[in-house]
Amino acid sequence: MIEVKGLKKHFELRNGFFGGKTRTLKAVDGVSLSIGKGETFSLVGESGCGKTTAARTIARIYEPTEGAVIYGGADISRLGRKELLPYRKRMQMIFQDPYASLDPRMTVGEIVGEALDIHALRRGKDREDRIRELVSLVGLKSDHVGRYPHEFSGGQRQRVGIARALAVEPEFVICDEPISALDVSIQAQIINMLEELQEKFRLTYLFVSHDLSMVRHISRDVGVMYLGNLVEVAGVDELFSGMRHPYTKALLSAAPIADPRRAREASRIALSGDVPSPLDPPSGCPFRTRCAMAKGICAESKPELKAVAEGHLAACHFAG
C-alpha cells in the first residue's frame, strides 16, 4: 500500500553568524521499504539512527531531500500543501511523548475536533457525536472531552493522541515510539489497543521503536536502521532467528531477556566504540568502524541492501 524508494533526508547545518559554512547531516540516507495493507512494519535502531526522521519524512513533516513515497499509486513526496491534504487524512501520526504532542491549552474535544475541522469532515451535532465516539473508542469516558491534557495520566494522554489520529479515519498510522514514555503496565494497555484498532479498521502501521521485545510482539516485518541506512529487512520471525547483518546480531544480543534462566545462558556480542557522527559517516559500509568482520572491501564500497533469502534483505558484503 505504501512504498518508500531511496528516501533521503539531509539537514543543512549552518554554523556561525550570517550563514557561513554549511555542513550536511545525513539523517536518512537512502531508505526503501514497502508495507502492505493491514500490516505492521517496524523500524528499529538506536537513537540517532534516523528511524524517527525517516518516519517523519514519510509523513511529510519533513521535506524529503531525495527519493519517493508512493502512496495509493501516487508519489506524495513532492506534493504541495493543498494537494497533500487528502493524503494527510489517510495518513496519521502518533507521537512518542503524549504530553508534548498535545496542545496544553486545548481540551480533548478541541484537539480531536480540530482534525475533523481541517478536513471538513463533520459539523454541528454530528461532529460532537463523532468526538464522543472516538473518545470512547480509545477507552476514555465521554466526560473526558472537556478536560485538558494535563489532567490525564501518561497512558490516557496517549489514548487522546490515538483518538486524534483516528479522528479522520486514516488507513495508515505512523507510530513513533508510542509507548516508550509510558510505564510497563500501561505500555501493554496501549499496545493491546493498537492491535485491536488495527484489526477493527484494517489499519496499516509503521511502528518506530527501540524496544525489541515489543517490536517482535507487534510487527510483521522489521527493518533495522544504522546511521541513516537500512541494514537489514525481514519478516519478524526470520529476523529474530536468522539475522544476517552483524549489527542486527549485536543489537538483538544486547537486548536483555526478561527470563532469568535464558538470560544466564545468553551470550552477547559486544560492540566497541560509539556510533560515528552522521555529519561525517565512514566511507563504504556505515557499520565497518565497529564491525568485527570488517575487511578492506567494507571501506571501499557501500554494500547494497540485497536479498539473502526469500523476503530477507541485508546490506553486508558477507551476509550471503
Binding site: 517523519r56 509523513a59 513533516i61 500543501r81 497533500l84 491534504l85 494527510r88 487524512k89 496519521q92 501520526m93 507521537f95 512518542q96 511523548d97 508534548a100 504532542s101 498535545l102 496542545d103 496544553p104 480540530e114 482534525a115 481541517i118 478536513h119 493522541g161 486524534r164
Partner: peptide, 12 residues
C-alpha cells in the same frame, strides 16, 4: 514543541 509538529501533520 511536539504539538506544533502534530498540528502540522494534521494538515493545518
Amino acid at each position: 514543541q511536539e504539538y506544533i509538529v502534530t498540528a502540522r501533520s494534521k494538515g493545518l
